[in-house]
Design a protein around this nucleic acid. Structure first.
Lengths: 169, 169
DNA sequence: CAGTTTACGTCAGCCTTGTTGACATTCCAA
DNA sequence: TTGGAATGTCAACAAGGCTGACGTAAACTG
């Protein structure tokens, strides 16, 4: 590692895109882009007294209605205590509903209420607008590459969670 | 917004990559990938009692040695008070050196010490390793698209900061 | 049926990292 | 030379992560 300058050519194919400098730029691009990615919802959330954690919960509950607390936990990658704090406020504010499971009465299934869906729409409209503008500017081939690199960057279990959501499980 | 299904075709070119569902998947990809992106340095930092904020400071001081607190502030997008706390511990621990400006004695110029550079190398080696693996797996065209979309996703001033660093200013 | 495991909620306490407010120092321009 | 603007520091607070411990209900298992 820290090879300074990577081997420029291998098997006739240029590997210049793997130099430390290129990787460093990719790291910085990721950092700056993620800021933009969260900026619009953050602004909306700041007005109510919610944070990014609430947004994440709302997003994934909307994405997989009826999901259990445990499932949400593994998707978000936080502890149940941490999630619970957020969930408690969302339920108290009437944005999320928690229903006792029918098959397994230990489980709680989570749903957005009408108000919850309204907020979700507002948040994801803002986020999608930026995403759409970026996609349009970059074009379809760039988007395909974008997705490909992001998927390769995920941890194995996150990639599984991602694909499960993608395929609508 | 929230158009459900975007117009499928426009000017002979497919716009299917701009559907809400595609955008939603992009959002989730971004979320999961960012987790992977920070996971390796996070593990290293957890051992010492540092966090992600320390990593960011170290990264950008290494990237632009002699930068002022104010400049670092605008790159990181946090308040000076927040940055100061991190900086204070890094200076106390002998990883960062703060030199009073010669032209303007109000300014502090920041440099990594030998130990600071060592930690920076350790952290960025870990992060680059993942990045390199992802780049290699996705291939050069995908990487170009990845960068293109990320740049389009940045706020204008972040894009400027990004390009300034990229061009080694 | 008794005991164990699983799912969930909650309390308490800690740490990092964001925030605002108050303040010291330094520079610069009227 | 003096008052405002800019740079950076210290203090206090809040959000949201974390661990650990505990309680309850339901499901599973020998």
């Amino acid at each position: 590692m820290s090879d300074g300058r990577a081997a420029p050519v291998y098997g006739g194919e240029s590997l210049l895109y793997l130099t430390d400098e290129q990787l460093r730029q990719g790291i910085e691009a990721m950092f700056f882009a993620y800021r933009g990615f969260t900026a619009d919802p953050d602004r909306i959330l700041a007005d109510m007294h919610y944070g990014r954690a609430h947004h994440r919960a709302i997003h994934f509950i909307n994405r997989a209605p009826g999901t259990t607390v445990n499932n949400l936990l593994s998707i978000l990658g936080v502890t149940k205590q941490s999630l619970n704090r957020v969930l408690r406020t969302l339920i108290a504010d009437g944005l999320v509903e928690s229903r006792v499971g029918t098959a397994d009465r230990r489980e709680r299934h989570l749903y957005l209420t009408e108000a919850g869906r309204a907020l979700e729409t507002r948040l994801s409209d803002a986020q999608r607008a930026r995403m759409r503008a970026a996609y349009r500017e970059a074009g379809p081939e760039a988007v395909a590459g974008f997705r490909k690199v992001l998927e390769a960057m995920m941890d194995a279990d996150m990639r599984r969670a991602y694909n499960r959501l993608k395929d609508g499980a």
